[in-house]
């Protein structure tokens, strides 16, 4: 059950990324490039994706997940230095290549050697992230 639901969610996610053009790096960079040939497509993708999710979050109220367990609680504290620093680092990479983790995986069969190297570097970065995060925590801690 959980596996089938995961597969279905993944297929919808991958299909949506493909159809929306989000595996085309020029569309992502076009959205970020306000001084160039600005492309609003990403805003429509985000807007379109947020609509069913708003409904889904409403439906979680007073219910349990179909396959059992509990719905996830919001992490506390809501804002911390990791959220900001991590998002800035992510945004830098996202802008440079025009790829984020979802599209990097969805396009792996048709994005050539560059796509494979990007994914490999991303996995290395993910492996290094816990150590980098601890380093940031030390920097952020009051002396």
């Amino acid at each position: 059950m959980r596996l089938l639901l995961s597969l279905l969610a993944g297929a919808l996610f991958g299909g949506g990324l493909f159809i929306s053009g989000m595996t085309d790096t020029t569309k992502v960079q076009g959205w970020l490039d306000v001084f160039g040939n600005w492309d609003p497509t990403l805003a429509f993708v985000m807007g379109g994706a947020i609509l069913p999710m708003v409904l889904a979050w409403r439906l979680t109220e007073g219910r349990k997940p179909l396959a059992g367990g509990e719905f996830p609680a919001l992490p506390r504290p809501e804002l911390d230095h990791r959220l900001i620093t991590g998002s800035v680092l992510f945004g830098m990479g996202w802008g440079l290549a025009g790829l984020c983790p979802g599209p990097a995986v969805a396009s792996i069969t048709y994005n050539g050697m560059g796509g494979l190297i990007f994914l490999a570097a991303m996995l290395v970065g993910m492996g290094a992230a816990p150590a980098v995060g601890r380093g940031l925590d030390r920097l952020a801690a009051p002396a």
């Binding site: 680092l89 992510f90 990479g93 983790p101 993910m126 992230a129």
Partner: peptide
């Protein structure tokens, strides 16, 4: 870019 995306996310 890959490293930044991996670490940052």
């Amino acid at each position: 870019a890959g490293l930044l995306v991996g670490i940052g996310t």
